[in-house]
Design a protein around this nucleic acid. Structure first.
Lengths: 156, 156
DNA sequence: TAATTTGGTTTCGTAAAGCAACCCTATTAA
DNA sequence: TTAATAGGGTTGCTTTACGAAACCAAATTA
């Protein structure tokens, strides 16, 4: 984490990064998406120090990305599960994964391909689309004037 | 940045975070997408220390996300422009922005809406889609067996 | 009763990130 | 000539992040 916090920034990207923009948080969310729920499993799979993991889990719970569930079972008592807010990071994580696979392919092994359960076919690359579903690049979009109250400040 | 580096991780998300996963880099890319190109403009808009900005710009150039262009003009001599790799972060940034707007709405002001130049209509939420363009949630996808060489290691 | 597992918290020391301030060069404007 | 601007680099200091290891409590297992 950095010194400067962006809780009050008027940029939603900065505010998002404030919650999941650190090193471990997004990886924790990723693993949670693949089914990891218990403290020790996160710790072993990520190779993260226990105090750091505890701190990140607490913060993710505070930010309503995960919720801590008391499962009254033998030995294992707590689970960390994604909230709807956490599950909503799915496109972010997948977009990042596809970007990483494309531009920094794995030194060994295959890029992960996700398939949808219904058809068994691979998913599409995540992209920005217009109202009709046509892909858009950054050159195809603009910010309407009324959306920028104080000059260009809404971009900062 | 963290102590542990993920250059050699077999997880593409970890490798992606290794390049743009720190506090400032993604915000720099965001501003670059909105047209910022010069050192001082980044510095003033982001409120970042000059040495940190210099470090991040150097790393982004090293990682081929930005390229440094010598424009032999009066006073301003260099510009930092997105490469194709950098522009390819567009879906990631937009997905993150939409997530931030949805779950942490701006305390004041409107969430930014992007529109496509051709039609003038707002863009769609970025999402994961199947081969036919239907939206997929995390519950709708799976990882085929042949894509996970050594047990669950490809997820780590 | 003793050992093990789960799920952490606390303490400690190190490495890194970060900011502020100063310095520096080159060019342009007044 | 004297700013002023662009584009940094360097130094010094503070704050964090991080990992390792110790510790701890409850519950289970042997």
């Amino acid at each position: 984490m950095a010194r400067k916090r962006f809780d009050d920034s008027n940029c939603s990207v900065a505010r998002a990064l404030n919650e999941v923009g650190d090193w471990w948080s997004l990886l924790i969310v990723l693993h949670a998406m693949y089914g990891t729920r218990r403290f020790v499993d996160f710790q072993q799979q990520l190779g993260i120090a226990k105090n750091i993991l505890g701190d990140r889990l607490t913060r993710l719970v505070d930010n309503d990305v995960l919720r801590k569930v008391d499962v009254g079972e033998h030995g294992s008592r707590f689970e960390y599960r994604l909230t709807e807010k956490g599950r909503d990071l799915f496109p972010v994580v997948i977009a990042l994964r596809q970007w990483g696979d494309k531009w920094n392919p794995a030194p060994e092994g295959t890029p992960l391909d996700l398939r949808d359960r219904a058809s068994g076919r691979s998913i599409q690359p995540v992209g920005v689309q217009d109202a009709d579903g046509n892909p858009l690049s950054i050159r195809d979009v603009f910010v309407p004037e009324e959306s920028t109250p104080d000059s260009k400040k809404s971009l900062a």
